[in-house]
Amino acid sequence: MTESALGQSGTHSRRVMRSSLALARGLGAAHSGVTHWWVQRLTAVALVPLSLWFIVAMLHLLGAGQPEVARWLQHPINAVLLLCLILASFQHMQLGLQVIIEDYVHNKLTQLATLLVMKAITLLLALSAIIAALKLAFSQ
């Protein structure tokens, strides 16, 4: 990503007046966007194996009671993979919902309010999932 971004800026520099610092940063006029795009792809790649693992794990836990779920999460590998899944999916989710809101909510003030509410809800849900998973993982 960095290489191609710099490569593009490099070819542009012959025609467009931009400072060396701006070229090195490679952020463009909006100062953001590359990170959003890149993080969405990174989390997507991580979520491919994590989602498949989660489906298999859920099939394994079908009809299980609370003690069995706790025992399953007490295994460190399951706890780590579940935490990875929670972090990657909620990050991926808030980036995706952000694009949808930016596309369809045209009024700037309503858009900002909707974005803030969405991000707050996502954060609350992610933290709830993380705390619940950690509590189960460290339970006796």
Binding site: Q66, V69, A70, L73, L97, S128, A129, A132, A133, L136
Partner: peptide, 27 residues
């Protein structure tokens, strides 16, 4: 489907939080 999955995280969070709360809540 992305929006449906976002809504579906509510079920996942409810499932995890209930499991961390009590066997009755989980049931």
């Amino acid at each position: 489907s992305g929006m449906a999955l976002a809504a579906g995280t509510l079920l996942l969070v409810a499932w995890l939080v209930a499991a961390a709360s009590s066997p009755a809540a989980f049931a």
